[in-house]
Structures are given as C-alpha cells and as structure tokens.
C-alpha cells in the first residue's frame, strides 16, 4: 500500500550561461533559481495494482519515484509505503522494493551477467536456495539461458533490459518501480518485457508503478493511469477515463473554436481536432499529446 499525501519538492539549480563574458562574470558570482518539481502530489496505490505514471518531460515523475524509493526527502507532505516512511529507514525500505531505470545500468560492465547476479545476491544477502529458485524462474520467464554467461557490454539493449529487470527482482520485492523500461527497445523485446510484467503481477501480485512515454506500455500493462503535470496530479483513473477527458474538453473547445474558426485558427490544431473526434480508436500518442496541450502542462 502506497500513500502519498500533499507531497511537494523544490530544487535549487545553478544558472550558467555560455559565452566568454559570462564565463568571466561567473568566476565571481553565481545565480541560482528555484525549480518546483512537485507542488502537491497525493495518491494511493493498493497492493497488487499496476499503475502507469505519465506526464511530459520534467513533470516530476522521476522525483516521485525517487521519493518513493527513499533516495529523496520531500520538503513537505507525508508518504508511506507499507507503513514505512521511505527516507527514514533506508536499508529496511529498499529491501522490499525493486527499481529499474531504463536509461542506466546496474550490472557490472565487464563481467558475465551471472556474476553480476551473484554480486547482487551478496548485496541483498539472499539465501542460496531462494536465490536459485528465483533465478530459475526469471531465467525461464525472460529466456535468459543463453545470455547469462555473456559479459554485459556485449549484450544488445533488449537483452540487457531483460537482465536489468531480473537483477531488480532477485530479492523478490513486493513493489516494483519501472522508469521507462522499454526505452530504445525493438518491438519483440518490448512485447517480452510487457508480457513478463503482467505475468509477474499475476503470479506474485507484485505492485507495479510504471513511468513511461510509450503509451502502448500503458495500454498493455496499466489498469490505472495517473497523469502528472507541472508537479500536480491532474487525473487519476483508467485509460478510458483519460480518453473521455480528452473528448469532453475537446467538445467544449470545438464549440468555442467554431466561433473562432472564421478568424483563422492554427492549422495544426484543427488538423488534430478532426483526427481525434473523427475516429474511435485513435492513436494513443495523439490523444496524450492533445491532453498535454489542453491541460497546458508542456
């Protein structure tokens, strides 16, 4: 059970401009600006749920994941995961969660995957029997047999991602955070990853929180979608709810637009309008793009 309650977070970032003159000036003083990553985020996720967490770049997705996994302390608000406050007792907390970052590797580059797994076994102090059992299961589900003996640097991106996911699951976490797990993968690998996540959820009822820009991931996996923009939760419901939301606001807008149309509207805008209102089974990416625009969160 995950509970986030009015969580907010602000960063201070140093400004730095290019150019010789600026560089000289920078020697003597430095400006900072505040960036509000999360302004007010609240939601609850029950055990065994699979939730998609979406939003445009810089909306605060990573910050949320970091807070939930205990590596970032929020400025205000409360947050608890299975009754634990993530950043308070780090070691106890991280034993229970698994995190996959699609863009970063957690495997050791020069050694065979198997050896990386052995190291992770040691890091999490996984009992030998449990380790063997889990590894066998993961090997079968993700068909890792042939790649376990290969050094990580020689793996293709798809193979590596399957190994990354396994590495995060060796200690059998009850909760799995996936941060863009299908980024850069080919179609076959994407399908394999999605299938696996669904199976994992079904068999172990692992709670899954997934952030992604790939709407097909969401469609395939998530029963529920949380949309975040400019640090706020803007929508929380099913994928269908999201589609409805677009259509509703769309209808309202198109009435307004009818009047405006004569004064000459943005061509791309109207083109998109007809696209969405026209077909029932739209391209998901277009729906989301539309939604981001309507909510003005880009």
């Amino acid at each position: 059970m995950i509970v986030m309650d009015n969580v907010c977070k602000t960063y201070k970032v140093a400004k730095r401009n290019a150019g010789l003159k600026e560089a000289c000036r920078h020697l003597f003083h430095r400006e900072t600006e505040e960036i509000r990553a999360l302004t007010d985020v609240s939601f609850q996720i029950a055990d065994g749920e699979m939730v998609g967490y979406i939003g445009p770049n810089g909306a605060g997705k990573s910050s949320t994941i970091k807070i939930l996994s205990g590596i970032l302390t929020p400025d205000c608000g409360t947050c608890s995961v299975d009754g634990r406050i993530p950043w308070k007792n780090r070691i106890e907390h991280v034993k229970q969660i698994g995190v996959v970052f699609g863009q970063r590797s957690q495997l050791w580059w020069d050694i065979p995957v198997n050896d990386s797994f052995e190291l992770i076994k040691e890091i999490y102090s996984i009992p030998a029997e449990q380790y063997k059992h889990t590894l066998d299961e993961l090997t079968e589900l993700l068909s890792l047999q042939e790649i376990l003996k290969t050094p990580t640097r020689q793996l293709s991106l798809g193979q590596r991602m399957r190994c990354e996911i396994s590495a995060s699951l060796l200690h059998q976490p009850k909760l799995l955070f996936l941060d863009e797990p299908t980024i850069g993968l080919d179609a076959v690998s994407k399908l394999a990853v999605r299938d696996f996540i669904k199976k994992l959820n079904k068999e172990h009822s692992t709670t899954v929180l997934l952030t992604t820009h790939d709407m097909q991931d969401i469609e395939a996996i998530a029963e529920r979608v949380i949309l975040i923009g400019k640090g706020k939760v803007l929508m929380d419901g099913t994928l269908q709810d999201m589609k409805d939301l677009v259509r509703l606001t769309d209808d309202a807008q198109s009435k307004k637009n009818d009047a405006a149309q004569s004064r000459g509207n943005d061509a791309a805008q109207s083109c998109m309008d007809t696209d969405i209102t026209g077909k029932e089974n739209d391209n998901l990416d277009q729906i989301v793009a539309k939604l981001y625009q309507q909510l003005d969160i880009l």
Binding site: K66, G70, I71, R90, E92, V94, I97, F101, Q106, I123
Partner: peptide, 18 residues
C-alpha cells in the same frame, strides 16, 4: 553525476562500502 549513487542508495548496504 552518472546516477550510480542513486543505485547505491537503493541497495540495503552501506554506501561507503559500495
């Protein structure tokens, strides 16, 4: 900078050791 320290914090071990 490469985010490896985040990964270390995600593991139930002393970061210094890691």
């Amino acid at each position: 900078r490469r985010g490896e320290f985040d990964r270390m914090l995600l593991r139930p071990r002393s970061p210094i050791l890691q």
